[in-house]
Structures are given as C-alpha cells and as structure tokens.
Design a protein around this nucleic acid. Structure first.
Lengths: 224, 224
DNA sequence: TCCGATCTGTAACAAATGCTACAGAACGTC
DNA sequence: GACGTTCTGTAGCATTTGTTACAGATCGGA
C-alpha cells in the first residue's frame, strides 16, 4: 500500500456507472481502494479473499510458482477488469489459488463479498461484467494451455514478444522477466533470443529487445 | 447422434427443478437432446455453437490438438455440469475454441442461446449454475496449467492415475489414451509406467493399470 | 570516475521428452 | 484354430530444455 498516485476510481468503469440509487449505496458501502508499486505482492496463494478486486488503473499479474522457484504468468488483469479468482473465492468461500503481483503501478478497488453478491443479483450490468470476466479468463487460460501443449518455447517466445511489443517494436523487459512470464529460465530465453537475433528478426539489448519487422517475425512463428 | 439409450433429462438436474412456470415454458422451448457414443466428436474447433450444452449423463472431454496431432485434455464435463465454452460462445457470439468428444456414452441437453439468456436473467438458480460452471472450469484450467508448469511428466502421470483410478485402484485405459489426456506420446507414458512398475507402485496390463497402494504412490509423487 | 549491482552472452554437460522402428502379446472375429 | 488388429514393451537416437559456471557489459549512485 503506497501513497496515492492515481485518482482512478471504480466509477470510471462503465459497468459501475448509472447504477440504481440503491445499488450505488450498496457499492459505496465498504468500498476501498489500494495502491501498489510495480512488483508488489497483492495476493498470496492460500489466503482468504475478502472481496471482488477491480483494477482501476495499472495491471495485475496472476502467476504460479514451481517447486524450484520458476514463475509462470497465468494471465494479466487490465483496467476495468475484475479478478475472477477473487470472485470465485467469494462466491465459493475458497482460498486464493495463485499469486498476484502488480505488473505496474496499480490502483484497485475492493468491493466486499456480501455487497458484491447483492449487486450481482440486482444489476444486470454487474452480472454481465462477471460473466464477461469469467469468459475472458477462461479463454486466456485455454489459450495459454494450448500454447504450452502445442508449441516449443521458441514459438512461445516469439509470440510473447509480438504481443508485448510497443508500437515501435520495443519490449522493455529483462530476460529474467520474460522467463518468469513463460515459466522457464533466463538462460533458455537468452539462447532463444540469440537465434532470433542471428536470424535478423530482433536486436537484443539491456532491459530491451527490439523487433526489426513484426510481420516477418510473426511469419517465422508459423502455425500453432 | 445415436439411438436413445438413456432417459436422463435436464429436469433430473437440481438447477432445472422447481423453476417458475414461465421459465419452464422458456426452457421447454427449443430444448433438444443428443446422444453420443464414447469417442464421438461433439463439437469441433472453430464452429459456431447454437446453445448451452448441459450434460445429462455420461461425460464430455474438452481437448486441444497440437500441430503434430498430439491431443491434450483441457478438462472434463460431468453430468449436471454445463459446457462453459459453449456458454461463452452464446454470450459473446464467438466460435468454439477447442474440440469436444464424448468420454463415455453421453446424453446432452442443448438449450438455445436466446432461451438460455432469458433464463439467466430470470432465475437465480440458473445464474448460480452459470457462475459455478465458470468457477469450476477456471479452477480446473488453472490447476492444469500449474501442473504443466510445475511438474515433470512422471509426477503428472502418477497424479493422473490416482485421480482416475476406480475404488479398487484400477485405471481402465490404454497408454495412448493416457498420453492423449496428458499431451504426450504413448512411448513416454510406457517408459514412465515401467519406472512406476519397477518401483512396485503399479502393475501394467492391456487396457489396464492397477495401482498397488494408492497411498504410497501419492507419497512418491511428492509436493507439486 | 569508481564501484557495486544487475544484466547479458556463452559454453559444456545433464535431464527430460519425442521420434523411429520392431517384436511379441493379447483380443475378437470368422 | 487362424488371422488381423491393436496394444505393450523396448532400444537407440534426436531434440529440447534445464543447470552450472564464468566473463564481460551496462547502469546508477556516491
């Protein structure tokens, strides 16, 4: 919990706008905001969750940690999105099943479980958001699983780079960070990057990778 | 679509019992049943889905196929459960993103999308079932992803055997079937089974594996 | 400018999984 | 009983990923 940097609020999100007055009262009841610096741990695996987490600004990274300490990103939660696993925990009284950290400076709104359930029953928009959140995560998890089962790491890396590159083709990350997203080791990433670099697809640098031609790189990945 | 073998109906499922008369009328409108033999393809990747699929009896297997033809099971859908991906497709007008086959002789009820949406808005029980279905699948997908990232195949196999064994410790499957669930090759499964057999944990046979002592096997898997 | 911390590049070797090829065993059908 | 099909067991080799160990490059702060 850090000092207030952002003023993004839950009413910036369309779902929470124009609610019935009663629903607005319910929403305001118990609503709290939390701020996190990049890299801060937001939720620990095995812990009880107290409410629905909605990202007002920034980004959350949900990840798993293997016995030897390797991290693998399960999915990312962007502004306007809610953390499905937290929803799941409040609907079913479960413990949180993964780790969550702030992938950037992040501001989240937490709606207590009881209040969220009320809103869910009363407001079609909240229901739609909930189903949407679940739908989105199911698809992301499925895509990740398919990726892991169907692709070699080289392909997964190339796709990761394409997905996370800014408009000028830059990926501002260390090799270790990339490894932590893909669930592998830094050295393997380095080796794979070397191949991409010698093929002319990318240029490597400290904390940065530049994609020379995204289209050619995408073509080189081939079908999944 | 095979000849009627089962009479299991959607009203055998608690969620669909005691609905309001109007909802019952909506439900009956357009509701259809389909029967499948084990191994029959139920849904193809990339196809449009017309409704909500509810398993009345049997079991569905949702799986992915890699470019070289390796199958990997994403999750199973049991009686009383609904296919979340189909729900997702009717809520969002998407194409079906995976393959589905009958894991046993299966009878499913299909509720057209329009009718299902009406029921979702009117019936708290249908909403709960929907959220429950999404919740269950999210957890299963997450567990599978964590397994893939955190465990060697030997561990995954042992866990798979423990999970699918009948009460007398028998797993009635071919090695190829197991391989298709775990996203690997039959030979790798055979090699791994040989190790488990020589350690005294299991006995192999044609179409069958017998776990000698489930508790010892579970211990040998160790932490994830 | 110097220094410490962190990141990158690389090599060698190990482990895990996949591929190819066979032989033999186990079934079910005629 | 014979035969064809399918499954199991196995070996050898290939590929992919992981581990260990270093050296050098790059930053930021003092």
């Amino acid at each position: 919990m850090e000092n207030p940097k952002s003023t993004a609020g839950i009413t910036d999100i369309e779902t929470f706008q124009n609610l019935a007055p009663e629903s607005r009262t319910v929403l305001a009841r118990g609503l709290r905001y939390f701020e996190y610096q990049k890299g801060s741990l937001v939720l620990e695996k095995g812990r009880r969750v107290s409410g629905a987490y909605v990202v007002a600004s920034g980004q959350l990274r949900v990840f798993t940690i293997s016995p030897d300490g390797n991290e693998a990103t399960l999915y990312l939660i962007n502004p306007g999105e809610t953390c499905v696993l937290a929803l799941n925990c409040i609907f079913n009284d479960l413990l949180y099943p993964a780790w969550v950290e702030a992938g950037a400076t992040t501001r989240i709104a937490v709606i207590p479980g009881t209040e969220f359930r009320m809103l869910f029953e009363r407001e079609p928009k909240i229901r739609n958001m909930t189903v949407q959140a679940f739908s989105t995560i199911v698809f992301r998890l499925m895509a990740e699983l398919e990726d892991v089962h169907s692709s070699k790491l080289d392909q997964r890396l190339a796709r990761f780079l394409l997905l996370h590159a800014s408009t000028d083709g830059k990926v501002q990350m260390t090799q270790q960070e990339i490894a932590s997203h893909l669930g592998t080791t830094r050295e393997v990433i380095a080796r794979s990057l070397r191949q991409l670099a010698s093929a002319g697809h990318i240029q490597t640098g400290r904390n940065r990778i530049v994609i020379n031609d995204p289209r050619k790189l995408a073509e080189s990945v081939g079908g999944r």
